[in-house]
């Protein structure tokens, strides 16, 4: 879990250019304008390459993936299966 979290936060920080994503896991990435539709596709590919799990675009709504914590939890769930 800690490893997933660390890798995901690195990816998110690099994508958004916002160090706050590491400080505040409940930061709303949509409301802050930090992730748009292009970024979500990039995120999907990064997750596929790093963790080997698929995250099809319609599986979760954007609101279900709007904070670093929620994204990490979804990946952790998928890794656990």
């Amino acid at each position: 879990m800690d490893e997933i979290k660390e890798i995901m936060l690195d990816i998110l920080e690099e994508m958004t250019g916002e160090p706050m994503v590491k400080e505040d896991l409940d930061l709303n990435l949509l409301e802050e304008g930090l992730l748009d539709s292009l970024d979500y596709v990039t995120l999907q590919l990064e997750i596929e390459d790093r963790f080997g799990v698929l995250l099809p675009p319609s599986e979760y709504t954007k609101e279900e993936l709007d904070t670093p914590r929620r994204i990490i939890d979804v990946i952790a769930d998928k890794m656990a299966v």
Partner: peptide, 15 residues
């Protein structure tokens, strides 16, 4: 359209 057209096209373009 975002979920079933745009995102999938973009994914293919990126790959």
């Amino acid at each position: 359209l975002r979920d079933f057209v745009f995102s999938r096209l973009l994914r293919s373009c990126m790959r």
